[in-house]
Design a protein around this nucleic acid. Structure first.
Length: 301
RNA sequence: GGGGGUAUAAGCUUAAUGGUAAACUGCGGCUCUCCAAAAGCCGACUUCCGGGUUCGAAUCCUGGUACCCCCG
């Protein structure tokens, strides 16, 4: 038996699978509060495009990690991890049940596994310098600095090579990624077939457009975000930005969006598929009732 | 009816001095050490059909088919 006694309920699944609605129902039932695990919902002003819960939808359930950053600034997983851990501990202190809910796997696992990232802030100047070099050159540099990390890193991935060099330069080498889990986690995954998900994504996309998603992007632009920054956010922000710049027409925007969101869902699943701890909602049961039972048992132990 | 052109992956655009059929998109799979809705990797699928020349044909010759253009 592990000594970890703090309990955390994680609700995950691909985009558009219905995590939000389910988690609110469950939180209401179990005296819970919700910590969002979404790499885009952390930004202020990005609401419709990220599918952020509205005040009304929250039904009085407290939500954390929404609107904690300005979209003008770069936010990172390390910042997320710190804030999320704080929030969870705060909820536990109140004797409430923390629900970690979201679809950003990297963010979820940064909390669930509590990876120890090297304590080193990004050095934008150095990154810009290194960006000019080819992947091959970068790999050679890393090899000299830290041959061990060079062995496991992807040779063609400049972004990761640059980060590794950044760390190795200051710390001498890249420390092994340590996992130090501190919560007893119940991982609940919402399962959807590919066809179902496709339809859900389509439906949700049209709904968001009707709700004024394009106007939201226009507004962000007016507030000073560059087109490049908007495109960096991906999905709705990327394709609407392209549309607003006249690079593509409306139909192309929809088509590309649908495709990219489907891709995104697939990519999320490659993380989740590996994790054997996840309990997937069975298609034969009502997800809410099924999850309720599971959580009840989990909290009893 | 006559003359000319085009035909390469699921799609589209496009490569390959007669010498291992390829890129892009899509599709499938994967990686994950501070941009993760990011970034990167791997895979499957092709020469319109038939004959000929050649050691060897997407390529040259020839017949057919489909489409396009011009003349009547």
């Amino acid at each position: 038996m592990s000594r970890i006694t703090k309990k955390l309920i994680v609700i995950l699944g691909p985009t558009a699978s219905g995590k939000t609605a389910l988690s609110i129902k469950l939180a209401k039932n179990f005296n819970g509060e919700i910590v969002s695990a979404d790499s885009r919902q952390v930004y202020k002003g990005m609401n419709i495009g990220t599918g952020k819960v509205t005040k009304k939808e929250m039904q009085g359930i407290k939500h954390y990690l929404l609107d904690v950053a300005s979209p003008k600034r770069r936010f990172s997983v390390a910042q997320y991890q710190r804030l999320a851990l704080e929030a969870i501990n705060k909820i536990l202190k109140k004797n409430k049940v923390p629900f970690l809910v979201g679809g950003s796997p990297f963010y979820i696992y940064s909390v669930v596994e509590k990876w120890i990232f090297p304590k080193l802030k990004p050095d934008q100047k150095l990154r810009k310098e290194l960006e000019k070099k080819s992947a091959k050159e970068l790999f050679q540099i890393l090899k000299k600095l830290d041959s061990k990390r060079a062995k496991t890193i992807e040779k063609e991935n400049k972004r990761r090579l640059i980060r590794a060099i950044e760390i190795a330069k200051k710390l001498g080498r890249v420390p092994l990624l340590k996992k130090t889990p501190q919560f007893n986690c119940l991982l609940i995954g919402i399962k959807k077939s590919k066809e179902e998900l496709k339809k859900l994504i389509e439906k949700r996309l049209l709904k968001r457009l009707k709700k004024g998603m394009i106007e939201e992007v226009r507004k962000l632009r007016r507030e000073g975000l560059s087109w490049q920054r908007l495109e960096e956010f991906g999905l709705e922000y990327r394709w609407i930005a392209k549309y607003l710049q006249g690079k593509i027409d409306y139909e192309e925007m929809i088509k590309n969006l649908q495709k990219d969101i489907e891709h995104f869902a697939k990519h999320q699943m490659t993380w989740f598929k590996k994790d054997k701890r996840i309990k997937w909602t069975p298609s034969t049961h009502h997800p809410y009732r099924w999850a309720k039972k599971l959580i009840k048992e989990f909290l009893k132990k």
